[in-house]
Design a protein around this nucleic acid. Structure first.
Lengths: 323, 323
DNA sequence: GGGAACTCTGCTCACATGAGCAGTTGGCGC
DNA sequence: GCGCCAACTGCTCATGTGAGCAGAGTTCCC
């Protein structure tokens, strides 16, 4: 049932927010004191009778960001609202990531980046001169074998060029056939040098992939659909810098991981600033895994994904009581 | 493209409405003066970036009400928002009508009412003792032949009883087979007396019916589906107190009208207070006809119907220029 | 290049508003 | 009936806020 006070609240809210009357005028009109009216309005806002919404593609969901930060001990989080209009969510998340990078103070001296569609889109959204002297280094392999090799390289190059620095590419496949080959290539002076630079980066920026046959790692011939199916059956939810993890953030297949070139998850976890940019329906599981296993310190995503991450009741490894 | 000011507006709006910061604080944060922030916020509201909504079944759409009043020279209008939750719109409109009646000052000495599902619902929503001494009189025929005769009578009786007055029923069919019979029955002392009371009512409350085979007039056997189809082919959009009108509010069939018992549309048009309560998708055409042909001075409806009435570009017989 | 028309900016000032507080009312147990 | 607690009411006062105004900056036309 709708109570009398509720009805009064509605009436007052209408007069206040739609008719632009003062609380005083409303008081006279409804036969109440202006303080009573003020209290009714506060109540109306608290009860959700009055809903104030910010409708803009570039708006953000601060309450969710705050909750993400608290629940997962993040340094920062950015949540972009789900599209009211038709604009692509992935695009707006990339834009937000670009904004975030741009606003970093101080800007990272060296930025470690992965590659993929998301990283590409971020690069596109970085305006010329977004920073001065930001060197970029690739943190996982993928050049040459990959259909997207050109893009992978260009992503890093574009970010570096617009950021006024140099790009260092990682001249290695993402996954090798034998562990020994990986050790050998990593021992090579060129590759070793790049990996060292990568390890010393002041910030990391990466996305994550879904564990299914549509993965770029399958697409590029590093893995067969059967390999991925096997990984999934063993609990894999997706990959981060080429390494497949389960819902708890653990490496699913140590043998495979031993053949994968790039910085380790441990390095990522201990980094001062690791920015994960993950959005879109299919990526919710991997997003949850990344965030809840502390693979990132900054999480940039869309509203739906954030909701999925937050709604998971048993997530939040570092859930803290707050007063 | 999203301009810089727009972005600033969004940012300011977020801080103001979501973080509850003062304009002063926002000014410091964004490096602006507090006046600039104030202006950005005003702009954000004007541009619709900030949307303030009142979400409540009993809320009303004042801007539409105002527009209806202006466009159609109404004394008053009530527009109930389309259901956010699942509750019946028809029910909420009836509730609004009941509220309206109750709030009438002074209450009508005699209230002329039609009958039907809508009127019934209104009666149900009137609380006991909603007025003191309101006599009720039926304004159109329908007793006895009608399946709903009992309801028709009870509607009037309930309104009268709860309003602390007497009900006067119109003991006549809605439509007779011959004009002569109608004249004869109207000449009968009882019926004549009731019609006289009806003509002298201080306010009228009625709904309207759709012109199709589902009409209560067909249902009750007054008209055959073929009759209605014929009326529709001649432009009928619905009926008001048993009389079929076209989109311009004119009687469609004078012969039929001559056989219909009850107050005339002319009487309705010249009434000081004629309250039409019309809602629901199929009734949009008849609602438009009623409002645009001045059959009512008060119009109570739902948001969708109001929108349909207002969107019709060539409606508004008395459209006035306002400064 | 000069000037008029315009917008934009920061300000004063009056008004609107919420926090905090004391007095009042209305339950509720004894 | 009596007193206690809790909720509610109306108030003071400090603060937040928008209207209106004058000066600065910009655009545009001759």
């Amino acid at each position: 049932m709708t109570t009398t006070v509720e009805l009064l609240s509605v009436r007052a809210a209408e007069l206040y927010y739609e008719e632009n009357k003062t609380q005083d005028e409303i008081g006279v009109l409804l036969g109440l004191t202006r303080w009573k009216v003020g209290r009714l309005l506060t109540q109306a806002r608290e009860l959700g009778i009055v809903r104030i919404e910010i409708v803009h593609p570039r708006a953000r969901k601060h309450s969710m960001e705050r909750e993400l930060c608290e629940r997962f001990s993040l340094v920062d989080a950015v949540v972009v609202p789900s599209a009211a209009d038709g604009s692509s969510v992935a695009d707006r998340v990339a834009e937000a990531a670009a904004d975030y990078l741009r606003a970093l103070r101080p800007p990272p001296a060296t930025l470690g980046v992965s590659w993929g569609r998301t990283l590409d889109s971020i690069a596109e959204h970085l305006p010329d001169g977004w920073a001065r002297g930001v060197d970029v280094v690739q943190i996982n392999g993928g050049v040459s074998l990959n259909r997207r090799a050109g893009t992978a390289a260009s992503t890093a190059v574009v970010i570096a060029r617009t950021g006024g620095g140099q790009a260092t590419l990682l001249p290695s496949p993402a996954i090798l056939e034998h562990r020994k080959t990986r050790l050998a290539i990593e021992a090579d002076r060129t590759v070793a040098g790049v990996l060292e630079r990568a390890a010393g980066a002041s910030a990391y920026l990466y996305s994550a992939g879904v564990a299914d046959a549509s993965s770029v790692l399958v697409d590029s011939g590093y893995l067969s659909p059967e390999d991925v199916a096997e990984l999934v059956s063993r609990g894999a939810v997706g990959d981060v810098v080429g390494r497949y993890i389960d819902a708890d953030g653990n490496i699913v297949d140590n043998e495979l991981d031993g053949r994968t070139v790039g910085i380790s998850l441990t390095q990522l976890r201990s980094a001062a600033l690791a920015i994960a940019v993950i959005s879109g329906g299919p990526k919710q599981a991997i997003a949850r895994a990344v965030v809840s296993s502390s693979l990132c310190s900054v999480f940039i995503t869309d509203e739906a994904t954030a909701k999925a991450v937050l709604d998971n009741p048993d997530s939040g490894t570092t859930l803290q009581e707050r007063s």
